[in-house]
Amino acid sequence: MALRVAKELKDGMYVNLGFGLPTLTSLFIPEDIDIILHAENGMLRYAGVIDDETQADADLINASGQPTSLLPGAAVFDLNESFTMIRGGHLDLAVLGAYQVSETGDLANWQLQGYHVGGIGGAIELAQGAKRVVVAMEHTDKNGKPRIVKQCSLPLTARRCVNTIITNLAYIELEGAGLVLKEVAPGITPEEVQANTEPDLIISEDLSEMEF
């Protein structure tokens, strides 16, 4: 999944990788292209996660709180500036995790059913502010229920914001007509994808197998 997400990253893009799973994508960015990663806690042009704790600097962390480092040409700034970048439409792409995505592109990714507390963080601004929003998530939840639904049952992060869904099973574009199945993971049939998806999928004429 992270490998497929990495293929969405094109030379010259300013990209925010949201909390958790999408952060993995930073490990798979091709070396021959120049992507500038934005961290909502105040960095442009940061590198991968540092595993060696003795090398960690708490003032050089990504938005998931993991130690990282700055690449040449990096900039640091405060949260207000960071969200000016996000809300102002200056990011080309945001990759977010999700609990649910609806067939109209509504996103739910901050609060579990029945809870009063939750973690919205910067997800709402990224979802509404980035030029393009890619959701990367497991196709079904831990009980095997579809995460791509007709209507989100969980509290929404933002309405009509998702452009693309990448899962362990499929690559789906949200277009005017609905959810268009463009790619299936190796060994997966379109019927299997549909069986695990609540709304009807439109099978693309150019349907292909996912390449990494």
Binding site: Y115, V117, G121, A123, I124, E125
Partner: peptide, 26 residues
């Protein structure tokens, strides 16, 4: 930790307001 705070909220011991980072910042 989530359970600790959720339990206090349900017991009426604590009020929470979740505010998006950027809205809070502004």
């Amino acid at each position: 930790i989530t359970e600790v705070i959720e339990t206090k909220v349900r017991a009426g011991l604590l009020e929470v307001e979740t505010v998006p980072h950027g809205i809070l910042s502004e």
